[in-house]
Design a protein around this nucleic acid. Structure first.
Length: 556
RNA sequence: AGUCCCAUGGUGUAAUCGGUAACACAGCUGAUUUUGAUUCAGUCAUUCAAGGUUCGAGUCCUUGUGGGACUGCCA
């Protein structure tokens, strides 16, 4: 275990180890396979797998357990995507892959044990009647008329439930706890319900399914989970969790600890909303690069390392918070700055003709692949008479502090010559169509000669070997920091500019070697990722992962 | 309205037994720079409120205030 500051959960674990309550922590990540994982899950994954990794030398481990107790919502498609996302993040559950549905017999036996202890009974009232009797936060509940059934009766009825003797909603097994409890979860909660549905794992073997509150503590106990970490919303469920552990024949006593879930601005974080965004066509799919799903972030090009360090920096507390996106963005940029190879791409090209350079001439110039890391080597670029630069890098009416190309001004082409503006052409809309420049000889690798003002270097590509590419620029999906609080709901504040597709981008030839998912920096523009699905050598497609920081853009 | 949980710079967090409130991000200023990036230096800014205990309170107590969870046969 490292010397780093421990959060409250790691403190508890350390103290449980100290007191020898446990020899090693055993944690679990227990998703329901009913949707794709999102950045919020990454926090839970990082916490649970992270803790296990920190105590690996003691034999700690983290289970991946699919909490599949509701057949109507779950599907194998999701178990596969969840596994893929966890592996992508860099975590390994090793042989500890479990399904709650593999424990159905165990749950059933525990239910029977509760019945025998008079701690559970079958209620054959309608859902509506049961709801009314539960009362509300101000009023105590009233006991079910079926609460006093005999053990024999209950055993009989429970068996009938299992054997298909009831329609959906016809009967439930309830815990016999306290209808007057301040905690609604303790007012004789439902333990089992009848659902005649096909289960992705158990098929049609069962027509009764355990509720989360009953199943979860039993799953944890069965797997000898020591610390069952979940989000704050389950705080009020903990007494029931403990009740189940205490009253059922279980092999271990897990402890539930709650922590605050991750909230991030300008995005939504619920399966229901993701589904709506996909179904209504606001995004292209679960893996749309604007989505905060892990599959979306992967496709966008976010490095898993950055997500992991992000999760680490947001910490672990019981405080509800709204984390600023800039914390994640910092981690992404920091990681990519170190590893991404630099390339040149012009997104909005305007042609520059070097009038004093021979039309049939060309030469190789050498540029570093990553100035941050010499070991990344360098590559050759071809300089020729006709090149492209970014339209916004030439301003006819440039402000004083504009460092790039202006009429009669000079600017360096990154890795190549300093060029000097001698003229340009415009179309009927006064849009620049072509720029004429002269190169200043002997300025490659050399400082600007006396009398030439040149404050920066701009990126460029040669017309002769540039590759056309599609580039997709992404912005936040919503215009409000809290989309859910927006007037008219989150769909009402969708950002119309969240996706901008550029078709005529010109990119240096070295991208021909890039494969799907590979990341690079397009100098001065940002970090980009060859699209995981659409990119190929005949039709390159890049996603902008994130822009570079831009203190000039802000001042403008 | 009841029960439970939470409250530290703009954001996320830290602060050992009650003993100098700190770190990262963001912002701002400057230096360096063949990426207006990076890097470097500096800077702004913090204990929800009121009482109490104490030599001393972010930390303990009381009362407020603000936020969150709970009234599924979802998880």
């Amino acid at each position: 275990m490292s010397d780093e500051k421990k959060d409250f959960i790691r403190e508890i674990i350390a103290s449980d180890l100290e007191s020898e309550k446990h020899a090693a922590p055993i944690t679990r990540f227990p998703p329901e396979p009913n949707g794709y994982l999102h950045i919020g899950h990454a926090k839970a994954i990082g916490v649970n797998f992270g803790i296990a990794a920190e105590y690996a030398d003691l034999g700690a481990r983290c289970h991946l357990r699919f909490d599949d107790t509701n057949p109507v919502k779950e599907d194998t498609e999701y178990v596969n995507s969840i596994k893929e996302d966890i592996a992508w993040l860099g975590y390994d559950w090793k042989e500890h892959l479990y399904f709650a549905s593999d424990y159905f017999d165990f749950f059933y036996d525990c239910a029977v044990a509760l019945i025998e202890k008079k701690l559970a009974y079958v209620d054959t009232q309608t859902p509506d009647e049961i709801r009314k009797q539960r009362g509300n936060v101000n009023e105590v509940g009233t006991p079910s008329p079926h609460r006093e059934r005999t053990v024999e009766e209950n055993i009989e009825l429970f068996k009938k439930m299992r054997e298909g003797g009831f329609q959906d909603g016809g009967a439930v097994l309830r815990a016999n706890i306290d209808m007057e409890s301040f905690n609604m979860n303790m007012r004789d909660p439902v333990l089992y319900r009848v659902v005649h549905a096909h289960h992705h794992n158990t098929g049609d073997k069962w027509c009764i399914y355990p509720m989360y509150d009953f199943a979860h503590p039993l799953e944890d106990a069965k797997e000898h989970i020591t610390h069952s970490l979940c989000s704050l919303e389950f705080e009020n469920h903990r007494p029931l969790y403990d009740w189940v552990v205490e009253n059922c024949p279980v092999p271990s006593q897990p402890r539930q600890i709650e922590f605050a879930r991750l909230n991030i601005g300008y995005t939504v974080m619920s399966k229901r909303k993701f589904i709506q965004l996909v179904d209504e066509g606001h995004v292209s799919g679960w893996d749309d690069p604007r989505m905060s799903t892990l599959s979306g972030m992967r496709r966008r090009g976010y490095p898993p390392e950055a997500i992991r360090s992000f999760v680490k920096t947001v910490g672990l507390t019981k405080q509800n918070s709204l984390t600023d996106l800039s914390l994640l963005e910092f981690e992404i940029r920091q990681h990519l700055n170190k590893v991404a190879l630099r390339k040149m791409a012009v997104l909005d090209p305007v042609k520059v003709i070097i009038t004093n350079y021979p039309a049939d001439g060309s030469e190789k110039v050498e540029v570093p692949n990553n100035p941050e890391n010499e070991e990344c080597g360098s590559r050759e670029l071809t300089f020729a008479r006709e090149i492209y630069i970014e339209r916004e890098d030439f301003l006819v009416d440039a402000p004083k502090k504009f460092f790039r190309l202006r009429p009669e001004g000079a600017v360096r082409l990154r890795g190549a010559y300093i060029i000097k503006h001698v003229g340009h052409e415009v179309d009927e809309n006064n849009e620049v169509t072509e720029i004429h420049c002269e190169m200043i000889p002997d300025t490659i690798g050399q400082p600007a000669p006396e009398g030439v003002k040149c404050r920066t270097a701009i990126h460029w590509v040669s017309d002769c070997d540039a590759i056309d590419a599609e580039v997709r620029l992404y912005d936040r999906l919503f215009t409000e920091e809290l989309p859910d609080s927006a007037e008219g709901g989150y769909l009402n504040c969708l950002n119309p500019a969240s996706l901008k597709v550029i078709h005529g981008a010109k990119v240096e030839p070295s991208i021909a070697a890039m494969t799907q998912g590979e990341r690079c920096q397009f100098e001065r523009l940002g970090y980009f990722c060859a699209d995981l699905k659409d990119h190929d050598l005949t039709k390159p497609v890049f996603n902008r992962i994130i822009t570079l920081k831009d203190s000039w853009g802000k001042k403008k």
